[in-house]
């Protein structure tokens, strides 16, 4: 039991931090520009593919640095020459633009790298066992992922809290027009935030790719969970996104690990009330839990856990 709790907590926090690397950018972009970026998870995917491609030629570590930067540049260009032009036609047009973009990116990735998963592996330098507990081992690569995610988190907080650019970003989250009229180049700040948000998602892809599966459907698999995270946390709230990321990371990991069904908890009557659902083990219900949470939060607390804005 202790073993299960330890590993599930580690994995849950790790999964949560990965979610946060994407949700942070997504929620910042949403509060500033008012647009839900459907293509955000696609940046995660191209991060993984760029990392894979670079690691094939010059190794994992150059990819770890270069791939997120490349993804950031791609994101900034998409904002500058795509989204900014679509912006004048309103939010629906922007939404449709990012929606289309997600499919374009998925198709491009399938065309270039094929539909099958690619062989993206952890570097040999991290391919060892970090520790073992009660006979179960924990890979060093996962510790590295966790460390990267935590470092990114600290970096993000420092930039937002301690720098002038961070101050401008915080003000522009709620009052972009006023910030512009004080003489700050808000369109450039938007482009930068979009680029950095894309870059962070790319970094998540680079480190998650070798541990999970790098394939063209990875964006579509993760995208919906990201929306759950930012809605549950409260649209536009960075703190909310952090808590919701960890919450969903832990819920999903524990649900998969714990093999109980409703019948085990409330007895044989469960089958009578819930039918087949009563006998289904929790692991089987796990995928639906985040969406259940989404629906409940929208009904009970539409602003999310930490949100202030109705939407």
């Amino acid at each position: 039991m202790l073993e299960l709790v330890t590993f599930s907590t580690l994995n849950g926090v790790l999964y949560g931090m990965l979610l946060f690397m994407m949700a942070s950018g997504l929620t910042l972009i949403f509060s500033m520009m008012g647009v839900l970026n459907f293509a955000h998870a696609s940046f995660y995917m191209i991060g993984a593919y760029f990392g894979f491609e670079i690691s094939r030629h010059i190794g994992f570590w150059p990819g770890f640095i270069i791939a997120p930067l490349l993804v950031g540049v791609v994101g900034a260009l998409i904002e500058r020459y795509g989204l900014r032009r679509v912006h004048r036609y309103g939010h629906v047009a922007e939404l449709l633009f990012t929606f289309g973009l997600a499919f374009v990116i998925e198709e491009l990735v399938s065309m270039i790298w094929g539909k099958a998963p690619v062989d993206y592996r952890p570097p040999p330098s991290l391919d060892f066992v970090a520790f073992s507990l009660f006979g179960t081992t924990y890979p060093a690569y996962r510790i590295f992922m966790l460390a990267t995610a935590v470092a990114m988190f600290v970096f993000l907080i420092l930039v937002l809290r301690r720098t002038r650019v961070g101050l401008i970003i915080q003000a522009a989250l709620t009052h972009p027009d006023m910030v512009a009229m004080l003489g700050h180049n808000v369109p450039r700040v938007f482009m930068m935030v979009f680029g950095v948000g894309a870059g962070l998602a790319g970094l998540a892809g680079v480190i998650a790719g070798p541990a999970l599966v790098t394939q063209p459907s990875m964006a579509a698999l993760l995208g919906p969970i990201l929306f759950v995270v930012i809605v549950v946390g409260g649209l536009g709230s960075l703190g909310g996104a952090f808590v919701a990321s960890l919450l969903i990371g832990l819920i999903q990991t524990f649900a998969v690990a714990i093999n109980v069904s409703l019948a085990d908890v409330i007895g044989p009557t469960a089958a009578g009330i819930f039918g087949e659902l009563g006998r289904a083990p929790l692991a089987q219900i796990a995928p639906v839990l985040p969406y259940l949470l989404l629906v409940l939060v929208l009904i009970l607390r539409p602003t999310g856990l930490f949100g202030t804005r109705e939407s």
Partner: peptide, 19 residues
């Protein structure tokens, strides 16, 4: 239009166009 969550000092700093 004050920036409500920022401090008074930070609001004033944002009035400056550069550092």
């Amino acid at each position: 239009d004050v920036f409500p969550s920022l401090t008074v000092r930070q609001n004033l700093l944002l009035g400056q166009k550069s550092a």
